[in-house]
Design a protein around this nucleic acid. Structure first.
Lengths: 338, 338
DNA sequence: CTGAAAGCGCTAACAT
DNA sequence: ATGTTAGCGCTTTCAG
């Protein structure tokens, strides 16, 4: 049987209260006693029982990440796990534990309620994939310490953070113009693909700012798969006047785009600059290696961890903002042109 | 303030013991009382305080997955997260919580000790990336309910489970022979790459069983990157007699291999069958789509969850085995030849 | 600076 | 079938 605080107190010839104070760094204990207690703890190989401590402190020093995983998540959504890893690091620093719960949107409401009612965790990080209006109301009503990852697409009271995809789009366009590319095209997802749309909007705003005209055929929308990227690129190339650089909304589209250019014998980056977003999975491997506007999702997870810890401390705090700043990784698919 | 068991007891005009029994489904409570208690619980919106329950039960109904994450883990190691997702599902079924802890091999020892000493969790799932001999001794000495994911490469007392890569290699070779391919080559990682070696051994055992000769140049070893795959493939093609099918130890090598064949204008699968392992990330996207021997790591995580729950119940149980069975996904890079 | 004692909310042995 | 009661191991007043 493991030693308890009583055993330590007995061996150190003091009271449990004193032992507790030593553990929690109370000021008003004499050096002498501290030494004796610490000696006793070592002697008995004592470690406070966290279950007892959690109980009496009414806190578990833990945060649960509520999201939707399921088979294939590891492959289809590496961002989710980058966030998770970053989150873990931030929590770990403050000795908070990270729990993971995978749920459907429907079940999330009951679960969140359950966590709060039973006091299972001190805070919640909720992925946008499981939010709903009901959850918003619940969170508002219960005053749950939480952070939502990903901007909700409806009116809400959530405290959320997200990536600034629009800014990423702006950076992409700006960089290409700085390189000397004159006319840019964009191939991406459809209206429902918010990420793609934000990136597109960023691109367009910079172009209009710089008075760069964008012919209709220069913006293509399709699925986020390789084949679609290929087809969209063919479409762009069929315009009477070709652009000299292309921005792909994501890696899958970029892969198709590169294939299309390759098959048409168009040299990258000499005849056509190619830029995409997110430093994975193809951008590092394709020939040529692609220039990307990257978003540090690990850091986003890390920041989320910082925020949720703050919220646990100061529940009335309300953050609602974009946080991560995209960064440019210049590689072989773009270059200065004159 | 949330209602406690006392409040419920008072409202239901009974004792806390009875309320507790109702919650935990004791047999010896009359229907009447059950109804009254349940009504009272609803009335007060009562939910048992998990912290109190964990405390008195000396159990947190939780399992911690100890591994090594860090930046880029989401991209470089999707398997880790497939495992995690599967694990979560298995634990969730039995209402166990999953905790995640990322650590270096060095810190893992202290952490595991800490978890056990403080009774933070009921069981541990430990990824092979953080195991060490010291940890083995600790686990043995403390009799910690644990499962290690990945076979340790040293003498140990761990309870571990792993993928059967050798069997996967056997399946790959068998399938290609069945297709009618006559001479097989293998390009993979070096001696240190255990996964690749096991796959190779499986392949070779089948070939020798079927009296298929393997010329020296038919087995190439290099790095697990695209370029190396390309180079190894060139090497294989430079042999005086070409094989008619090739097994690539992993997706990265396969990608290089496909590029090499493409550049040499060798048709897949007509002139050369190509097969690799693991259904990600390129196998589904490359042209042609690759036939793979796939391993269901999600299921491996799921099974791990089942096992650790068993171990928590029956600590003297000792499993030490391969569990997941590879499966073949036939796609366009192989076909019947006659 | 130290210690006695009162809980935290729940479970379970034991008594009725 | 139900209630009484003694903890579980720790923290935290409050008195000394």
């Amino acid at each position: 049987m493991a030693a308890t605080i009583k055993d330590v107190a007995k061996l150190a010839e003091t009271s449990t209260a004193t032992v507790s104070k030593v553990m929690n760094g109370s000021y008003s204990i004499s050096k002498e006693t501290i030494k004796r207690v610490e000696w006793a703890m070592k002697e008995l190989n004592y470690h406070p029982n966290m279950r007892a401590r959690n109980f009496v402190r009414q806190s578990t020093r833990s945060v649960i990440f509520v999201t939707s995983l399921g088979r294939d998540a590891g492959f289809s959504n590496p961002h989710m796990f980058e966030i998770m890893a970053g989150l873990e690091e931030a929590l770990s620093e403050k000795e908070y534990a990270l729990g993971i719960k995978s749920l459907s949107k429907r079940d999330a409401i009951d679960y969140v309620k359950y966590v709060v009612d039973t006091k299972l965790a001190d805070g919640l990080v909720i992925h946008a994939s499981v939010i709903s209006k009901e959850l918003d109301m619940l969170v508002e009503e219960y005053k749950i310490p939480h952070i939502v990852i990903g901007m909700p697409d409806f009116q809400n009271h959530f405290c959320w953070i997200d990536i600034d995809n629009r800014l990423a789009g702006e950076m992409a366009a700006k960089y290409l113009l700085e390189c000397g590319y004159q006319s840019l095209a964009f191939i991406g997802g459809r209206e429902e693909d918010k990420i793609s749309m934000h990136r597109l909007n960023g691109v367009l705003s910079v172009l209009s700012e710089h008075d760069v005209l964008v012919p209709g055929g220069y913006v293509q929308q399709g699925d986020s798969v390789c084949d679609s990227g290929y087809a969209m690129m063919e479409e762009v190339l069929s315009q009477q006047q070709r652009p000299d650089a292309i921005i792909c909304a994501n890696n899958y589209i970029a892969y198709g785009c590169v294939n299309a250019l390759h098959d048409k014998n168009i040299q990258i980056p000499q005849q056509m600059g190619v830029l995409t977003f997110d430093d994975y999975p193809f951008s590092r491997i394709l020939k040529p290696m692609l220039t990307v506007v990257n978003i540090d999702v690990y850091d986003m997870g890390f920041q989320t961890g910082k925020y949720i810890l703050m919220k646990i401390k100061k529940p009335n705090l309300h953050v609602q903002s974009y946080i991560t700043i995209p960064s440019l990784k210049v590689r072989d698919s773009t270059k200065k042109v004159y």
